[in-house]
Structure formats: structure tokens, C-alpha cells
Design a protein around this nucleic acid. Sequence first.
DNA 1: GTCTATAGTATGATAGAC
DNA 2: GTCTATCATACTATAGAC
Lengths: 209, 209
Amino acid sequence: MAKVLKTKDKILNAAERLFAEQGFEHTSLRQITGIADVNLASVNYHFGSKKALIQAVMERYHSAFMPELDIRLVELEAKGVTSTEQVLNCFIEPLLSLQRINPNGTSIYLSLLGHAYSEIQGHLRRFTMQNFGHVVQRFLACVQQANPHLTLSTLFWRLHFTLGATVFVQVSGQALSEIAEADFGEQASAQDMIAKLIPFLAAGIAAPV
Amino acid sequence: MAKVLKTKDKILNAAERLFAEQGFEHTSLRQITGIADVNLASVNYHFGSKKALIQAVMERYHSAFMPELDIRLVELEAKGVTSTEQVLNCFIEPLLSLQRINPNGTSIYLSLLGHAYSEIQGHLRRFTMQNFGHVVQRFLACVQQANPHLTLSTLFWRLHFTLGATVFVQVSGQALSEIAEADFGEQASAQDMIAKLIPFLAAGIAAPV
DNA sequence: GTCTATAGTATGATAGAC
DNA sequence: GTCTATCATACTATAGAC
């Protein structure tokens, strides 16, 4: 039975795809409603404004991802953290579970995160930190437990390098995947990408200063 | 003696700053000419179009950076590459020398690179590869010499993680620097940032698969 | 809830006087 | 080379009929 989507969901689906591909500012309501096949005015009817739509899109992913991640970090904390890779592995399942929202959910979410940081979307950073700041803190604590030789400042920067490497590859992902496919005959699924990333990131985070 | 800048240079200086801070699409000609204190029409008179202005801004940095990097890579190739860190060190001086163009030259250039990748600026990627593809190739060859245990495909991805970590931190740099300063009382100059990056990146690139 | 029509604003680009 | 004035186009948002 083919599910008939409500207007609100059609808008969300179209918006998350376009936001991930093009960024927030660079995606117009006309594009979104065009692809969603709904009327232009319906975005404002259902969400109030473009800014509110952006937050609704992020919210749907955040609220699926963050609690899942938190559960795994709490478990890990309880049994004791011994390696950086252990911490990063906590991300795998929560990230892959986003494919239940959308077949490209994983890479959409990471792209959205990238755009949220690099565009002038201060409100998004604040929004994230207010709602899920405690998960970020727990993550930081775990990494520090795995790397007692590193100062908090060094960790802070390395975790942002980590975020950067991850989201950049997603944001510029289409172009990169095309090159990779042409040069190495490789398909790069979200799962493959994560598998490639983790050894790189774990080694980088734990590197001697 | 205070140098009086020509209109063309005033435009370039204002444009590179705004492009680095906000991205290309998100910066208007009115902003640029407002800050440069020149007439709106002068951009089109001197450069022809906004697209041509973008390329002129990139060109000024590319042509200062790429040949410098190439010289160092050629030297290194000649005496034989033994470590990843050696290769990355080749970037330091060329990057820092960009501060002769502009006191913030290093971080402006890296930000521009980030925006060039993540915005839909296909023409910029092509432009770069056409003019400086051989430098990129030489860099890849050096890294491979330092890491004979890695396949070309693995290297390809890790070098993009590297680029991502680097440009992301620059693009979202202002926000991060503010947080870092608040939390650790640290100033993060371009030179400091590079010093923090290199151990992270070298360990990540050379990590076991 | 959904539509049309349009207000109000910002953009890149250009014609033409000086 | 530099200016004013303006065109054509795109955008978000909203009022009001159905």
C-alpha cells in the first residue's frame, strides 16, 4: 500500500534533500515547493517561516540521532573507555539508523551539520547546544578518558578537525563520489564512508602532540 | 608613505575578505563595493561579472601559493620522501607567505578553498585543476611514497578528509576561535592552527587501514 | 488547507551622462 | 574611469478568495 504523504511531510522530505545538497540559504522555498509538488504558500502555513522550516528539518534528525548516541556513550562510560576507536564506534549505528528516515539519511544529516556550521546560522548552533549540549559533553568526556595524555584544548581542536573531515566529505560528497567512481570504480555508500573515516579520525585524535 | 590603492585592488581586498567570511553566493556586489568604498558599477567595469571577480580573487592566492608548494615538493621528491609529516611540512611556508598579500591571507585562502568546494562552484574546481592539477598530482605522489602500505583509493579519501578538516576549521573559524578563547583563553593564529593540525593529519593519513 | 495574486525587498547587470 | 538611474529577475512572506 503506497503511503500518501501529507503536505507537511512532502515539504520536509524535499527540504532536507535540497538543504543537504545546496545549503540552507541557497535553497529557495520555490525550489522546495516545486519538488514537493505543493503550493508555495503552504510552507508558511505549516511552518511559519523558512527559518522555522530549517529548524524542523534539523530537529527531525537530531531527535533521532542524539538520544541513540547518548545511550551508547552512557554504556561505554559505565564499562570504562580504553580507546578512541571505541568512542567513535558509538556513532556508527545511530548514524546508520537515520536511513530509516530517508534512504540517504546518514549523509543528509552530516551534510546538514556541515552547512549549519559553515553558513551564518548562529541560531542553529545555539539551538543544537541548548537541546543536545549534554550529549556533546558526554562525548568529550569519553574521548578524554581514552586519551588522558591530551589537554582539553588539544582535544577541543582535534574534535573539530574530526567534525570538519566528516562533514566536508559529505558536503562535497557528490563531486567526490563521482571522481572516486571514475578513478577507482568504487561506490561510496554512507556505511563505506564511515568505515573509511574511523581509522583516520581515531589515529588523528590520539596522535602524540 | 601610505599607498593609495587603485579601485581594482580595493575591490579585490574587500571581496576576498567577504568571500572568506560569508562564501561567494552569500556576498553581494553591493556589500563589496560598499566596503571598498567604490561605485557599484565599477565591479562590472573592471572584472566583467561577479563570477570573473570570484576567479580573480582565487587566482591571486593560487598563483602565490601553488608554485611555492610545488618547489618544496620537487625538492622533497628529489631527496626522497620518508614520512607523511615531511610532506605536510611543505605546506607551512607557502601558506604563511600568503600573509604578505593580506595579514589574514592564510586563513582567507583556506576559507576560500572550503567555500569553493562546498558551494556549487563547479567552475572553480575545474579552474583549479586545469591550472594547478600537476601540483595536486605531485602532492599525491609524495604522500604515496611516504605510505607505500596504502592503496591509491585509501589515500584519495584520506587526503580529502585532510582537506576537510583544514578548511572546515577555517570556515567556521571565527565561531570556534571565540569558543576556544572563552574556554581556554587561547588565541588561535593561522600559524598555531597549522601547528595543531599537522600531527593530527599526519597520524590520520598514515593510520593502519 | 489550498490556492492566486501581490507586496516588499534584494540581487546582478547595464545604459548613458560626465 | 566613475557616477546615477534603472531594468529584469529572484526571493520571502502575506492577504484574501475558495
